[in-house]
């Protein structure tokens, strides 16, 4: 599964993309965030303030309590500021 990071979350993690294989007991976006946050100090800094972290599963916005199972890509980013 591919994980994508954008904006200041990308800057804190230090990479824009990575391929991961979370364990079977990690099934929701919130659990995935917890699991990713343990990977490095950069990840921990990026995910420190969960309320400011938005997620998309295969390019659709999803809440933290939803399942990411079956996703090809999951993206994490701050609230959007386009327009």
């Amino acid at each position: 599964m591919t994980i994508l990071y954008f904006a200041w979350i990308r800057e804190r993690v230090g990479i824009s993309e990575e391929t991961v294989s979370p364990p079977g007991n990690v099934t929701t976006i919130a659990q995935l965030i917890d699991w990713l946050a343990a990977r490095s100090p950069g990840h921990a800094a990026a995910f420190k303030d969960r309320a400011r972290v938005k997620a998309a599963k295969d390019q659709e916005h999803v809440p933290h309590d939803s399942s990411f199972l079956g996703a090809k890509e999951v993206a994490f980013f701050p609230p959007v500021t386009g327009g």
Partner: peptide, 26 residues
């Protein structure tokens, strides 16, 4: 379309001033 674009379309602005770069807050 503009109102929903502002909260749904995945774009992020980073401004550069003399003080450096700042991500615009929602």
């Amino acid at each position: 379309v503009m109102d929903w674009l502002k909260t749904k379309a995945p774009f992020w602005k980073k401004e550069t001033t003399d003080a450096g770069g700042t991500w615009v807050a929602a």
